[in-house]
Nucleic acid binder design. Structure first.
Lengths: 347, 347
DNA sequence: TTGTAAGCGTTATCAG
DNA sequence: CTGATAACGCTTACAA
């Protein structure tokens, strides 16, 4: 819209850094009084207070949070450690954490580890350097974490998403994977299926084994179990192998997660089977693609945001009180989203 | 595997907080010497140094970064401000930022704004409180930001993803949206298409208007342009409307982004048209769903990770040197990912 | 109601 | 090669 480039506006010189004493001098009071006007921790004469506030506004004074933290002994910063922030699940979880933290006056340091233990150690050192007040830890695997374990009784930590062996005494927030498995089992059973393929995920992950267990609890028919991992290709390969051996011995598939489910669907399509007419397919996670494909993928929605939000809210409650959180386990509800990939078995 | 729950291991009492003077006393030297052994900023007798290091290791001393920051006047923390971290694009961008920052010894504070200006102000105050050394700012809209603008000459800021009106003098890293549009235009033209529907995104976004402009540059045929936004439903509605008015006046569609493209595909399917046989469809972003659907969605991949990584690397170079970054614009390359939704027009 | 002074844990300056 | 001392900017006894 502008016909020509505006001339470069000369910038004001960088505002000189102001300290509490500058404000005090300007207002004709002591730094103590300024501090108290700002914090409200002791009564100040209304007239004096007004004068101080006026100066504060005029010069645009903002207390240096570092100095404050140094005296208080805490920073109002928490760490959020995740294996991969670009993974939608962790990104949603991060949003939940950030929301809670922001509401309670905390900032969040993002610690992305890529499953690299050096990097993880680096971030755990933020604790030792007293730069953070608490840590939310998404392990990504149940492998014991000695470094973390050593902190457990001394430092506020919340475990999210995946439980860690030997750390049962931590504040924990996880999805109800078992209930999710049950929902799927019941849904398929109710549709009339009696022969299922259970494409289970990495069984060292408690989340994955819980899903499988829940499914078996609720699905009363015959279950063929094949282990795979969470990747599309692995699922594709596994199912292609089964189909190559002859007509399928199942009318429905519960895949370890949505990605695997997409691999299953592709394998079925490649082999000439229609979904859901010939085979019903269910995933887990309810990633966005589940609702974008046609037919939509029936899946179990994980409360990633709620996990983050709950964990942070719980954890910070204790932090604010100066306590180490006691053992507690928050199991958040999941829900089944029924879409087009599941239907009655063909007679 | 364990037959019964292990007995609760009694936790060691919380390690008493150690200061540099504790270490100094223990090692029989002055705090100054300990500081120098650790920083290497001045030569220390090798014997003394060894003794100090031994004490440091034994008691597990880690310097308090707050106190250090207070004297240095900088924190080695940067802010990353995004409208929505649960959006895959910003999550990938965040990963790039975190990677760069980590490599260069910085930590990242996650500032999620939800487009809320109070929240944005809150995070911009981290700057005023001298808690962060620099800021990476993903605006999400080109609306002028007075608060931000005032900082531009004084404080290291990088603008990413979307340019902001009036802030041309900032360090900027964006995707080459125009080239992306051109790639799409050329691809469809090369396939033989001569009548296109351009479903353009919010035209106040420079990214969206650049995509449209690039497309028009490269696609030589007739273009019908309809404005929509980035949501699936809006695209669905817009295309459904056009199709309801009679047979389509186009053989291909360039949607504002992948989400819109999915809306387009659904609308075409609902109206009985096949993709790509009757109409070719192209999106923008290359979200994961693009590769999961069948047929796969042809799309333009945005280098979200690289944008974050580049912006952070550039910005921190100046921060480390104690300088304000000069105006510079980094335009990162995009690429066309051809999948199943594009084909020759039917004769 | 207000102020003085000590202290938080470092690092930089200046002496020795 | 090493150490005392004064900052950094705030909070909080303790005093008045």
């Amino acid at each position: 819209m502008t016909p020509e480039k505006r001339f470069k506006v000369p910038r004001r010189p960088p505002a000189p850094k102001l300290s509490i004493s500058d404000v005090a001098r300007e207002a004709g009071v002591s730094p103590t009084t300024v501090s108290h006007v700002l914090s409200g921790k002791r009564p100040v004469n209304e007239v004096t207070a007004a004068r101080v506030r006026k100066v504060v506004d005029r010069v645009g004074y903002v207390p240096a949070s570092l100095a404050r933290s140094l005296t208080r002994g805490s920073t109002s910063v928490i760490g959020l450690l995740v294996p991969d922030i670009s993974n939608t699940f962790f990104a949603q979880l991060a949003k939940g954490v950030e929301d809670s933290a922001h509401d309670l006056g905390y900032s969040v340091i993002l610690c992305n580890t890529e499953f690299d233990s050096d990097r993880e150690d680096h971030y755990l050192n933020l604790i030792r350097s007293r730069f953070i007040d608490a840590m939310i830890y998404a392990a990504g695997s149940p492998a014991p974490k000695p470094r973390l374990d050593a902190l457990l009784g001394h430092f506020p930590i919340a475990l999210v998403d995946e439980q860690v062996d030997g750390m049962e005494s931590a504040l924990t927030a996880v999805a109800d994977h078992r209930a999710g498995g049950r929902l799927v089992g019941k849904h398929l059973r109710d549709l009339g299926h009696t022969k299922a393929l259970l494409l289970s995920g990495p069984q060292n992950l408690r989340s994955a084994s819980e899903r499988s267990a829940g499914f078996r609890e609720a699905f009363s028919g015959h279950v063929t179990e094949v282990a795979a991992d969470f990747r599309e290709e692995a699922a594709h390969t596994a199912v292609a192998g089964l189909l190559g051996a002859g007509p399928p011995q199942f009318t429905c598939v519960f895949a370890a997660n949505d990605l695997a489910a997409f691999g299953v669907i592709a394998a079925l399509r490649d082999a000439g089977y229609a979904v859901p007419q010939d085979v019903s397919v269910v995933g887990f996670d309810d990633i966005r693609a589940a609702s974008l494909v046609h037919p939509g993928l029936t899946s179990v929605r994980q409360p990633a945001y709620d996990i983050g939000r709950t964990a942070a809210a719980q954890l910070l409650e204790y932090v604010a009180a100066g306590e180490i959180p006691p053992a507690s386990k928050h199991i958040l509800p999941v829900s089944l989203v029924v879409r087009g990939t599941t239907d009655k078995p063909r007679l």
